[in-house]
Design a protein around this nucleic acid. Structure first.
Length: 291
DNA sequence: GTTCGCACCTGAGCGC
DNA sequence: TGCGCTCAGGTGCGAA
């Protein structure tokens, strides 16, 4: 699944290969892919045609391409959801089976395709609004900075986290508190910090909260460094298979396998209709877990 | 105001 | 072979 490192790889690819290019036409192949663009398909296509893609930006798992020469400032916003890909393809390349949106460019050198099997992701054109010194698409205004953001304030997040009355993993997945962390990196960060996912945030020491946030930054930076090598000129990569399995995951998806640190069998728990993986020895369950 | 649970969605894997 | 069920999980929204 695309999490922060994968989205950053895509952003860098788009910055290199589509910025400065003029959109000629837009083809929406599946309406659900632009469901967040309330005005509909024709408006979506009309607002992009003839526009220059000026810059590729990201916050957390949201990605957007700023549009040149408009007031108020606008951008085409993308979230990859669970299975989304943004691909740069030659115009004569066969359509992918889950191709949802196609952007053609005036130079006709290549086209940008939004491919999404499960259609949890999508595109929309949004106004940019000033938030905390940054210019963000309106639906992203509530998203916190991510641990790789140079302006990420770890001490402020530690304070905010300890005010919450919830479990630690739930807090890590709350994009309004800290963005970019999904189920995989949450489990990996918790393992590195030796903390159980059910620890009540209100009972964490500052050093523990700081440790798990630092671990999240480390594991995502390592994944980004690894993922950055799979990019080439014709493929803006969110390739779940190659990017995903190349990572060195300590616990995620390793139910029953030995913990790389102590050798105890990794355990899978149910967590809000999904899974959490922990080492029962390195990450002991708290005496009073958050329910 | 804060926290939680569920729907959304498709394909792989599995048991029968 | 085919059917039905479970699982995967980020986000937004309504309920508590």
């Amino acid at each position: 699944m695309p999490e922060l490192p994968e989205v950053e790889v895509v952003r860098a690819g788009l910055a290199a290969h589509v910025t400065g290019r003029t959109v000629s036409t837009v083809e929406v192949r599946h309406p659900r892919a632009i469901r967040r663009h309330i005005a509909g398909e024709r408006d979506f296509a009309g607002r992009l045609a003839g526009r220059v893609l000026a810059a590729a930006r990201r916050r957390g798992k949201y990605l957007w391409l700023e549009l040149d020469g408009c007031a108020p400032a606008e951008a085409v916003l993308s979230h990859l959801g669970m299975s989304g890909q943004l691909r740069i393809q030659p115009p004569d390349a066969p359509d992918e089976s889950h191709l949802r949106v196609r952007l053609r460019f005036a130079d006709a050198a290549s086209e940008l395709r939004f491919v999404d099997q499960r259609t949890f992701g999508g595109l929309s054109v949004e106004d940019l609004v000033p938030v905390d010194g940054a210019l963000l698409p309106r639906p992203v205004a509530h998203i916190a900075r991510d641990p790789l953001d140079p302006l990420f304030d770890v001490e402020a997040v530690v304070t905010a986290m300890r005010v919450r009355r919830t479990g630690l993993k739930r807090a890590l997945l709350d994009q309004t508190l800290v963005s970019g962390i999904g189920n995989i990196y949450a489990d990996e960060a918790l393992w590195r910090a030796r903390l159980h996912w059910a620890r009540p945030t209100a009972e964490l020491r500052r050093s523990q909260a700081r440790a798990v946030l630092t671990a999240a930054a480390e594991v995502m930076a390592e994944a980004l460094a690894a993922g950055g090598t799979s990019f080439d000129a014709l493929y803006v990569n969110i390739n779940g298979r190659s990017g995903y399995f190349d990572r060195s995951l300590a616990v995620y998806g390793r139910d029953g396998l030995p913990c790389p640190r102590c050798g105890a069998a990794v355990r899978r728990d149910s967590f809000t209709n999904r899974s959490s993986y922990t080492c029962p020895r390195c990450q002991p369950r708290p005496r009073r877990p958050h329910p």
